[in-house]
Design a protein around this nucleic acid. Structure first.
Lengths: 218, 218
DNA sequence: TCCTTTTCAGACCAATTGGTCCGGTGGCTT
DNA sequence: AAGCCACCGGACCAATTGGTCTGAAAAGGA
């Protein structure tokens, strides 16, 4: 409790320990994201992490604690792009940037995206509080930014909530349904051309719309 | 094997039997969609269905068989709206109708949507074949319809695949992430006003786009 | 050096898992 | 009436589960 972690060198001990914990978290993410909290066994996680089950339980005192630890590490990463939305930017660049970053996340942290999705499907028993307070406030804040754009005339009228849901749903889809997408189009976000096409098409639909433009509407 | 099911009256016996099977399937859908294949126990399913575990295993010889039976019942329902897309329709009504039907599905069959999502996240080990053959062909067929619209000038250029993914992802989102949406906006698709707002906003964004219309582009 | 604290693993445990066995019960045909 | 057979449930089983206990290396400070 009163231990002062030595700042500079980080004793070999602590470093190795932290590395082990991270290996365990990574293994847990891989298995939890595939089989869920109840579906993944500690044996399998310990095995994949290359440590004994006892050792795993030494670092994380229970399965649920481990699960929460993994989730927590994800959450911040996930909301970061939302926080970055700024009223000073033009809606074009703000939304365009957001789409690109979210698709990058779907490419680079697909497992995290899937675990988050799993947790939501199950009713988010461990995150509900967080959602109702922090996330809600964040969304309200960004909604006002969007409403500002609309009032200023630089965005056509739309309910900010539904816009945010559409952006979330669309971008997450490329991580969570990667198997389906690969089965259908034979491509993956790992393919740079497909990645760019994804960003480009989503952006074009959301910003420009699908219907041809007549010069007779607002 | 050689039994000929009596067509008209359906003996009390067979009717009760079928009713039981359906109750089991419903219970299985509820629990599988929440905890996944490995996370849901046969005990819990039998309990929720109001039958003994032995009786459940009498109708469905193994857990996996039951799981597949439930999935199969979902698949057709799910692809129905895609099949309905028709080249003769205008893209406006075709896409508008599709969005409305999918949001209705998200409202009325949220559990089915979630189970489908779970299966995808896990890599769809039981559906992979189906995806690579049937679904792929269906998507290719509808892609050509969309390309026809574009060629005809009634739709702005877009990659049909990404358009389909966007529609899937957005509409599914309201079922799979219902908890999140409720935590943030306090509304549910069960609320008719919220349902209409959802359909309306998605349609407006996809068809009309967000950027204000200048009279200086295609 | 000695002693405390951290770190780690093998043996073990009670509970739960998917699934089987056996014995019944009630409807339907002959 | 009689017997066949679809139907159903309680007892049971081997395997796996999350988690504990005991005890020993391996540091690190004195």
């Amino acid at each position: 409790m009163t231990s002062i972690t030595p700042a500079a060198p980080i004793g070999n001990r602590a470093a190795a320990s932290e590395a082990r914990k991270q290996r365990i978290r990574d293994a847990a993410l891989a298995l939890f994201s595939q089989f869920g909290l109840r579906g993944a066994s500690l044996d399998a996680i310990a095995d994949q992490a290359g440590v004994s089950k006892t050792n795993l339980l030494y670092y994380f005192p229970s399965k649920e604690k481990l699960y929460v630890a993994v989730l927590q590490q994800i959450l911040d990463t996930w909301l970061e792009p939302v926080r970055a939305i700024d009223a000073e930017q033009s809606p074009e660049t703000a939304i365009g940037d957001y789409i690109r970053i979210k698709v990058e996340l779907s490419r680079d942290h697909a497992q995290a995206s899937r675990l988050f999705c799993l947790e939501m499907i199950q009713g988010a028993p461990l995150l509900r509080e967080d959602l109702q307070s922090n996330l809600r406030l964040l969304v309200e804040e960004k909604s006002r930014v969007i409403e500002g754009w609309i009032a200023r005339g630089s965005l056509r009228p739309v309910d900010p909530h539904h816009l945010i849901y559409l952006l979330w749903g669309t971008t997450q889809h490329y991580a969570d349904f990667a198997v389906q997408i690969e089965a259908i189009s034979g491509r993956t976000l790992a393919d740079p051309a497909f990645f760019e096409a994804t960003v480009e098409n989503i952006t074009r639909i959301v910003l420009g719309g699908l219907l041809p433009r007549t010069n007779a509407d607002s």
